[in-house]
Simulated scan of single mutants.
Amino acid sequence: MSITSMPCYVFHNDSAATMRLANKFGAYFGKLPRHRRIVVVCIGTDRCTGDSLGPLTGTMLGKYRSSEFDIFGTLENPVHAMNLADTMDKLQMLFDDPFVIGVDACLGQASSIGAVMVGDGPLRPGAGVNKQLPPVGDIHVSGIVNIGGLLGYQALQSTRLHLVMSMSGLISRSLLIGIRMSANRAIRPAVP
């Protein structure tokens, strides 16, 4: 089993969290052919504290604008349930075979609140509040912001902003470091 196939799970207040996540991202990005564009899709809305993890992450990452990646989903221009499908269509038209990282908040067990998970495959936005939305990402980044259950939407509404800000900062820093670690990846021919 390779390092990229093993999920990474860290708490936002772990002193080594940034480097653990950055190393995980660097392992993914370092294997990418140079022609694959890194695109970060940050899902959520600032109208709900818990669901603002994605747009806050996109906004924080956007402060470090770079030619090494693109961002969809910020506080100013959020990607949410109403425009997610259109955003994914636009992304596919703009880029040839992009490497997409889906970032979203999620609900979980009380003992997991504050954890950030990075893993293979797409995330399923809206699952915690029973919405059917298109899957997003070659890999996913999920931040557990509150307790899941029957009252999922209320849990998102009552999430502490400090937690969401801390987790967004961790994710954006780690992504930036991971991308920069792999910026000089070798140019490799595309595999047919």
Rank of each mutant, 00 (worst) to 15 (best):
C42K: 06
I43C: 03
G44A: 09
T45M: 00
R47W: 01
R47G: 06
R47K: 06
C48N: 01
C48F: 01
T49C: 04
G50I: 01
G50C: 04
D51Q: 09
S52C: 13
L53W: 05
G54I: 02
G54R: 01
P55Q: 02
L56E: 01
L56F: 05
G58N: 09
T59L: 00
T59G: 06
T59E: 04
M60N: 02
M60T: 08
L61V: 01
G62K: 04
G62T: 00
G62I: 00
K63L: 10
K63G: 02
K63Q: 05
Y64V: 04
Y64W: 02
Y64A: 11
R65L: 04
S66D: 00
E68P: 03
E68W: 12
E68T: 14
F69N: 03
F69D: 00
F69Y: 15
D70V: 12
I71D: 07
F72N: 05
F72E: 03
G73C: 10
G73Q: 03
G73A: 08
L75C: 10
L75R: 07
E76W: 08
E76L: 08
N77W: 00
N77R: 14
N77D: 11
V79K: 08
H80I: 10
H80R: 08
A81E: 06
M82S: 03
M82F: 06
L84G: 06
D86V: 13
T87H: 08
T87A: 11
M88P: 07
M88K: 03
D89C: 03
K90V: 10
K90C: 08
K90M: 13
K90N: 08
K90H: 12
L91D: 09
L91N: 07
L91A: 11
Q92E: 14
Q92C: 12
Q92Y: 13
Q92K: 15
L94H: 10
F95D: 07
D96H: 15
D97R: 15
D97H: 14
P98N: 11
F99S: 10
F99P: 12
V100H: 10
V100F: 09
I101R: 14
I101K: 14
V103D: 04
V103Q: 04
V103K: 02
D104L: 04
D104G: 05
D104Q: 04
A105M: 01
A105E: 02
L107C: 10
G108Y: 05
G108C: 10
Q109C: 09
A110T: 13
S111T: 14
S112P: 00
S112W: 00
I113E: 07
I113G: 15
I113H: 13
G114I: 05
G114Q: 12
G114T: 03
V116T: 14
V116D: 07
V116N: 05
V116M: 04
M117Q: 11
M117E: 14
V118N: 08
V118A: 06
G119C: 11
D120I: 11
D120F: 09
G121E: 14
G121F: 05
